[in-house]
Structures are given as structure tokens and as C-alpha cells.
Amino acid sequence: MNIFRLAGDMTHLASVLVLLLKIHTIKSCAGVSLKTQELYAIVFTTRYLDIFTDFISLYNTFMKLIFLGSSYSIVWYIRRHKIVRRSYDKNQDTFRHVFLILPCIVLALLINEKLTFKEVLWAFSLYLEAVAILPQLVLLQRTKNIDNLTGQYVFLLGVYRALYIVNWIYRYFTETHFVHWITWISGLVQTLLYADFFYYYFQSWKTNQKLQLPA
């Protein structure tokens, strides 16, 4: 494993921990999109089915369990926790899952590495992950005051994606036969979605002002 991949995984882990800690300690999920969190739970469930069929490494299995566990915990907090759920504003978080899930199913059936149940699910999870952040970005745009932790969560997720791209470039040159068009293109699309957010994040950081996205 190269340093970019490891750094990417660690930022991903940090983003999830920031979000879980925010929800757990201040008992509020204000500004957090349940839709995005549910999409991530679907992404991890469909992609990590291979923990039952292939063993890659202890690290790999451990991280998969962490991402599965954390995404389900966050969804549980927002839906079921008796205090946290009160801070969830479902009138702002209106993005419809189905508009993202259905096209990803169709795309996965058409474009996959092999037309098998596992490979179609794998492709589906990559396509869905690429767009899963959209409800969160829409919610951020609607929220007048983005709190620091929610901003940091999205920022860390964006950094994780960017590091994965560097990791693919590195692997392309250092490993033989490392070509994964589906992963690369959907990963690139996913990272581009953060570009706009990054721009405003750095602006607010530079001028030391509260992060606010233009409507």
C-alpha cells in the first residue's frame, strides 16, 4: 500500500469520526444530510459484500467494518436517537434517493467489468458513491450557517477523494495491469463535485469568515 492510499483512508476515517463525534457529543445533526448518510450505508453494504468471499488483509477487513458500522450508526442516530432526531430538518433535506439510485443501477447493468451479481453491485457502489455527496452539498447550500464540524466533514471527504486519485496515478506507474476505468472515472467525477465547495472553503479560511455557500 502506498502513502497516498493510506493518507486517503486516514482522511476518510477522520471525516467519519468528526461526524460521529459531532453527533454524539453535541447531540445534534443540524446541517447533516440523512439522505447522503443513507446512500453511503448502501454504498458500503453493496461494495463490502466481498468480506464474506475474499480475504485481502486484516487492515482491509477492519476498515470495511469501521465504515459499515459508522455509516449505520450515523443513520441510526439521525433516525432513532431521541434527542439527535429532533435536530434533523427534513424539510431542508429534500433530495430524492431514487433519482440517484435508479440511474446508478441502470449504469451498473450496462457498464461493469463482468456481468455477474458481485461485479454489478461493485460497479453500482462506485457510481452511487460518486454522487452520494450531492444531497449533503445541496443541504449545505441551503443552510445559512454551516457549523465548523460539518464543513470539516465535507472538506475531509474531499481530501480523501483527491488522495485516492494521486494513489491511482502512483499505482498506474508502479504496478503492472493496474487499469480500472470504472473506478477512475467515477472517482474523478466524485472529486470534481467537491471543487466548488473547496473554492468557498478556502475563501472562508483565507478571510477568516464563516463558511457560507452562495445560493
Binding site: D9, I56, N60, W122, Y164, E175, F178
Partner: peptide, 10 residues
């Protein structure tokens, strides 16, 4: 390091 597979990624 596993070669030729991106499926070792998360």
C-alpha cells in the same frame, strides 16, 4: 502488494 487489482481499495 496485490498486482492488477483495484479491489483491494476501500
Amino acid at each position: 502488494e496485490e498486482q492488477g487489482s483495484g479491489k483491494d481499495e476501500l
